[in-house]
Amino acid sequence: MQKVAVAQDPLAASTDVDPALLRELVAHLRQDRTPLREEWTRRITDERLLSVMTPEEIFSEVTAVYDNYVDALETGSIEALERYARNLSERIIPRGVETHEVLGVVLLLRDVLARSLFQKYQDDRVLMNQVLDAYEPAANRIAVTVGVSFVQERERVIRQQQLAIRELSTPVLKVRDQLLILPIIGALDASRARQLTEQLLNGIRENRAKVVVIDITGVPGIDVDVANHLVQAVRASGLMGARVIITGLSADIAQTLVNLRVDLTMMQSVGDLQGGIEEAERQLSYAVTRSGATSPDSRA
């Protein structure tokens, strides 16, 4: 028994069971592997769980989980099962498998195995109780492990999708050499503004941009946090040698910025996107006779 791996688990205290009983239990589950797997698969199909998977797929996953499950019972180490559960979750989450299905499947296995233990030991109540005492905490722990792995994986996927959606909602468009446009659509919060800054600066570096037009026509409103992020993005762009022109500033937002006393001296603002691009073109054609963005006397 690997006590080390068990020791960190809150349920671990109750898994302190007779190793001989556990061996007997594991031997039974190995011996009846085929009928128990089939029973489990049948119950899964009956309850219409994992409906997006074919029966063959279900049987093959069931086999792998079953074997990992028995191994976990035997060794007390849930790491391999945890890895498999994560890997499985990663594969089935994109196909739309829901949390209740995964929990249902795991609880079914617990039932199927418990029933088979009842049957096997029904003539010896004392031994049956001992075997169940050994089985239950371990089985609960395994069920929790699989369930939690699935939920964690799901949360991770959701967060990653949120990031991806944000990234899609702020494309960095190269209009022509040295000129980028960032049309921002939708509400800005501090976290999206931070990400936008990152994309803007990487875009400047990758495209060797000298002028960037940020169009915020599609932004409904701005708070002081977001406004400061925008100012910061403009400053940082300047430090990397690129000027920023803001377009599409609504009267409301303009007034908010003034009321919030955001330092706007770094920002050049032009009414609409078309005007912004024209201004950018003008600056680029003069760029050869003009110097950098950070000096007040550079327009000589």
Partner: peptide, 27 residues
């Protein structure tokens, strides 16, 4: 000036007086 450094400088509020900036040596 690296992107992360540029963000840190502007968050800090550090400016470069009389300094011109460009992306790289060529620029």
């Amino acid at each position: 000036i690296q992107p992360d450094v540029a963000v840190a400088m502007s968050q800090f509020g550090l400016g470069l007086a009389d300094v011109h900036t460009a992306l790289d040596l060529e620029a």
